[in-house]
Nucleic acid binder design. Structure first.
Length: 234
DNA sequence: CTTCGGATTACCT
DNA sequence: GGTAATCCGAAGG
């Protein structure tokens, strides 16, 4: 079952980063209205719509010491409600999954395999548990700090849900954060990705979910170098 | 209380 | 291809 989406066909108005109010030709970003959090309405839609529209948006992380990490979202996965056997919420409303049942636009973060955190964005009207797993971003700001003391291609430091949270210093302390407030973590408008440039495939690591594992709810920017792994052909 | 397994990654053969 | 690492939360006794 899906929640009745109030804004099914109409795009959510987003303050594009292209906005040219007093635009400056210099390379410096005008941080005034720039990188403002996406509005609650963006998240309060079906998880598949939000998933698609999150591609190209900008993940922003402001550290306590003032450093700012940003990256372009290039890969996500949708987890859709109590019927989706790959979704944690399909096993009921528990302390861990509680954020998914709450208001959209909040973070749902959990620990997997005892060592990696996964960042999710809660979607849909409150009461309907659904979330988007952010699987990969293309680093923009802070890429050097993210790679400090690590090997591997610097551009891949946030490719994969566990690598992404490690690079951006995201852990359980940020669970339930309101992403519509520019505090420690939020998502800002970027360049939307056209449908024809979106690759789709089965979700990763959910083979226990039977036929639900085969649903093509992993979305990514076609051919992008920062994907966590290639998408299946056709 | 104990047991079990995971929306992953890195490193091994 | 295989598997160790590592710990929280859910479930069962």
């Amino acid at each position: 079952m899906r929640p009745a989406a109030s804004s099914q066909g109409s795009p959510i108005p987003i303050h594009r980063s292209r906005s040219t109010l007093g635009s400056k030709p210099s390379g410096h970003h005008a941080l005034g209205g720039e990188q403002a959090p996406l509005p609650r309405e963006f998240y309060n839609r079906t998880v598949l719509r939000v998933s698609r529209d999150l591609l190209g948006m900008i993940l922003v992380r402001l550290l306590p010491d003032g450093r700012r990490f940003t990256g372009r979202i290039v890969e996500v996965e949708a987890y859709d409600g109590p019927g989706d056997l790959a979704c944690h919420a399909s096993r009921g409303r528990t302390a861990r999954t509680e954020p998914m049942f709450g208001e959209s636009g909040h973070a749902y973060i959990y620990l997997v395999y005892g060592m990696y955190h996964c960042l999710n964005v809660v979607t849909s009207p409150a009461g309907y548990p659904a979330a988007v797993l952010i699987r990969a971003v293309e680093p923009i700001e802070g890429i050097e700090a993210m790679n400090a003391g690590r090997s591997g291609r610097p551009s891949h430091v946030a490719s994969g849900p566990g690598r992404l949270t490690r690079a951006f210093k995201i852990d359980l302390s940020l669970n339930r954060s309101d992403l519509c407030i520019p505090a420690s973590i939020w998502i800002a408008a970027g360049e939307p990705v056209p449908s024809r440039e979106i690759a789709r495939g089965p979700r990763i690591g959910v083979d226990y979910a039977g036929s639900w594992a085969r649903k093509p709810w992993r979305l990514g920017v076609c051919g992008h170098p920062a994907l966590s792994r290639p998408f299946p052909e056709t």
